[in-house]
Design a protein around this nucleic acid. Structure first.
Length: 206
DNA sequence: ATCAAGATTACCT
DNA sequence: GGTAATCTTGATA
């Protein structure tokens, strides 16, 4: 029995209100062409950052060289470098000029495990712990997928990195909480994750 | 020019 | 539970 083809999310998906995009990204498939295979991770945890009104957002003080991709059209990848060693990636939402995006915080690895493990420095076969540690954090998943400076600004409608639709999300249980790792703006419940999913970032399963 | 803080992680007790 | 690692950015002077 043949599996249905995975459809790339269209521009219109990203151009909707950011909180709705964040919620709807759960269960979708982060995909990257890598040599002769396709790396795939199911998105299980995200956070919305709502532009110049959001005190926790990189866009809070307006457009700068660092955050300029946030202000581009919905459907681009905003990658930033932090703590002197980590990259994190966001999906830009809505329309040009607003500076809104959704941070991808965790994925459940589904394909290309050998490559993802190699990028993370893990040996094969993976222990249960290492399998979870492939993508259960925003910097971890970037390392696993090889996402860094050169992927900043990439169009998710191209054929390098994109997000695929998934065909059956009827069982999806979504939880909504406050965002983590921020000071200002922590009162908003702009973090979403799949309830009970073991690939959500550590100690934040509820 | 200088400097503090950072949308984190790994490793320690 | 705690904290070192590591460097870019943006703010202030």
């Amino acid at each position: 029995m043949k599996q249905p083809a995975i459809v790339k999310l269209p521009r219109a998906f990203y151009r909707r209100p950011t909180l709705r995009v964040a919620r709807d990204l759960l269960g979708k498939l982060l995909m990257r062409r890598w040599k002769n295979e396709v790396l795939v991770g199911k998105i299980v945890e995200v956070e919305a950052y709502l532009g110049e009104k959001d005190h926790a957002s990189h866009a809070y003080r307006g457009l700068t060289r660092r955050n300029e991709v946030m202000f581009s059209n919905g459907g681009h990848l905003y990658v930033y470098f932090t703590y002197g060693m980590h990259f994190c990636c966001n999906v830009v939402t809505e329309r040009e000029g607003l500076g809104r995006a959704v941070l991808i915080r965790a994925v459940e690895p589904l394909n290309g495990l050998r490559t993802l493990a190699a990028h993370r420095g893990f040996s094969f076969p993976l222990s249960t712990n290492d399998l979870r540690s492939l993508g259960n954090g925003p910097a971890k998943l970037c390392q696993a997928f090889g996402i860094g400076r050169s992927e900043n600004g990439l169009d998710l409608l191209g054929n390098s990195i994109w997000i695929g639709d998934s065909y059956d999300l009827s069982d999806l249980q979504v939880a909504r909480t406050r965002r983590v790792g921020i000071k200002n703006g922590s009162e908003h419940q702009w973090r979403f994750h799949i309830k009970g999913n073991p690939f959500v970032s550590p100690a934040r399963l509820h």
